[in-house]
Structures are given as structure tokens and as C-alpha cells.
């Protein structure tokens, strides 16, 4: 297949974003993660900071409402803008890697979609987060739990399937087994095999 869309869901601290960036480099295609925020900012006139504030966050049920399909939750509207943007990119024939944003569900109608989920052992995730964010072990663990809880709520609100459920993805992989580079190699082979179908 000429077009490939690689969707990377990830647990916080599993190295999913780094793996997604490496895959984008190896296939020489753009990646939409932070870049997605800039793209949406350019399109709407919002600042990247404003979008970042509400990015991949579940809406507050007590402070927002939905009427006839119109939601006044800023989180919801930022999410919808991102889903729309991704669908337009996918429909235009562009190949890209996308991190999170319920992309495994929102883009599942595209046959060129390869959906991946990267998880990791808690001990490895804690080490990585302690290192990157300079946190103590307890704080790193709490930070991981908090981030994953948010991602789960965000995902499960916008999608029917459950975040991290292996049945939702083509391939779920534990990055702690082969390490980041080994996982990237494995995924590259898998994606190439899928592309040659």
C-alpha cells in the first residue's frame, strides 16, 4: 500500500512517543503529536498554549453540557478539531504517524491504518519518568497513574472501546522487553509486512 497511517497509543512512561518519532523517521513521514497542536493553532487562531491546556483531557461533566450534538466543553471541541484534522489528512492520502488522540478508533475506516499500543513494566516506566522529569520514585509512580487515568478517561469518553484493550489495536507491545530500539525494529518489520500486503 502506498499510504500508511501509524497510530501509536501508549502508556505514560512506556516510551511510546519516542518510538512513534523513530518510526516516523524510519518511514520518512510526518508525525502528529505536539505538531498537531501547532497545526490546529494555525488553522483556528487559537494559541498553542490554549490548545495544550485542553489537549487529550477528559471533559468536566459538571461544568459543560451537550445539546443536540453541540458541546460547550472546550476539551470536547479541541478533541473534535483534532479528530477532524486527522480524518482530513488521512482522506487526502497523506502518510503519517499519530500519537494518541483515539486515532486507532477515529481512523479505523482507513485500510492503511496500522494501530499499535505501547505499554511497559511499571518499574521501567518509573525509571524513565524519574529520569525525564527528575522526580522521586513515589512521585513518578503517582504521576504515571494520574496521566494514564486521564488518557483512559479521555479515550473511553470519545470511543466505544477501552483504552489499552488489545482487541482495539492491531498490535500491543511491551517496550520493556526489547527496549526502545528493539521495539522500534520489531514494529518497523511489522509495518513493512502490513504495507506489502
Amino acid at each position: 500500500m502506498s499510504q500508511v497511517i501509524i497510530s501509536v497509543g501508549r502508556e505514560f512512561g512506556s516510551g511510546g512517543r519516542v518510538i512513534a518519532e523513530a518510526l516516523a523517521n524510519r518511514f520518512n513521514i510526518p508525525i502528529y503529536d505536539r505538531h498537531l497542536i501547532t497545526e490546529i493553532a494555525n488553522k483556528t487562531g487559537l494559541t498553542p498554549e490554549e490548545i495544550e491546556k485542553y489537549n487529550e483531557k477528559p471533559k468536566n461533566h459538571l461544568l459543560s453540557r451537550r445539546v443536540n450534538g453541540y458541546s460547550n466543553s472546550i476539551e470536547d471541541n479541541i478533541a473534535e478539531m483534532q479528530f477532524k484534522f486527522l480524518r482530513e489528512k488521512a482522506a487526502s492520502g497523506e502518510s503519517f504517524v499519530v500519537v494518541g488522540r483515539c486515532s486507532e478508533t477515529k481512523l479505523r475506516d482507513f485500510k492503511c491504518l496500522v494501530s499499535l499500543f505501547v505499554l511497559g513494566d511499571m518499574s521501567e516506566k518509573v525509571k524513565r519518568v524519574m529520569n525525564v522529569y527528575e522526580l522521586t520514585e513515589d512521585k513518578a509512580k503517582a504521576f504515571i497513574d494520574k496521566k494514564d487515568r486521564k488518557r483512559k478517561r479521555y479515550h473511553n469518553y470519545h470511543c466505544e472501546g477501552h483504552w489499552g484493550d488489545s482487541r482495539l489495536y492491531d498490535l500491543s507491545v511491551n517496550s520493556s522487553r526489547l527496549g526502545i530500539d528493539g521495539t522500534v525494529d520489531l514494529l518497523e518489520d511489522y509495518i513493512k509486512a502490513r504495507m506489502s500486503e
Binding site: G45, L46, E50, Y70, N72, I74, N77
Partner: peptide, 16 residues
């Protein structure tokens, strides 16, 4: 209120 603020947000004018 919901519809008005939603239309504004969809067009890049967030109203918290």
C-alpha cells in the same frame, strides 16, 4: 448558551 459557546469554540474562540 451551550449552542452559542459551542459554535464559538468550533470556530476557534474558546469561551470558558
Amino acid at each position: 448558551n451551550v449552542v452559542g459557546t459551542s459554535v464559538a469554540q468550533k470556530n476557534g474562540y474558546p469561551i470558558g
